[in-house]
Amino acid sequence: MLLELHNIFKWVTQGGKRIFLLSDINLQVEEGEFISIMGPSGSGKSTLLNVIGMLDGFQEGEYNFLGESVHAMKEKNRSKLYKEYIGFVFQAYHLIDELTVYENIETPLLYKNIKSSERKALVADMLDRFNIVGKKDLFPSQLSGGQQQLVGVARALIAKPKLILADEPTGNLNSKQSEEIMQLFKELNQEGVTIIQATHSETNAAYGSRVLHLLDGRRDHK
């Protein structure tokens, strides 16, 4: 078992009323799964991913990650945990504009205090694998959207995470680029990386081994 959510509730209070962003979410994820979360805009897909990625908190429920209780953890330990095991891929890529492709990919390693020689080797492997060696000195603004997202995935993978969280990873891409990225995810999954993606697209969702439907913050079991 990689992670487990028990009766998660998350809400905000507006005008004295609780508005539920997530309510009563239960989910078990085994290592090696490829889960797609689907649902209309505002159904809570991103919120759920943020909760799983420990970027966001919740009010009620339990969250265990690799047997540790995330809900009872201090901020510092939490960030240690996700730094170690989780990689993020965003719809808007979120590359750092001031850094080159090489440096963007290298950044997570810097925060894990990995030695320079080892860093070089890891980044070189990654560039090789994604066929972007020739672009390593370019800045994000000099790349196409698909290439940027490729860098985004490479950056998420560099720290060898167990879990990749992808929030609409192809939302800003055309269909050909989308397919490439999804194909890449599939390969990664076959290599043993657990992936949870949020998506609008049935086609993309079909890459997953399991689909989770959300509506207004609840699991939709129809």
Partner: peptide, 16 residues
């Protein structure tokens, strides 16, 4: 801000 947020998701601590 975006850079700060991104760095934090990549594992940057406050001190860093």
């Amino acid at each position: 801000l975006r850079e700060i947020g991104m760095r934090k998701t990549l594992g940057a601590g406050k001190a860093q």
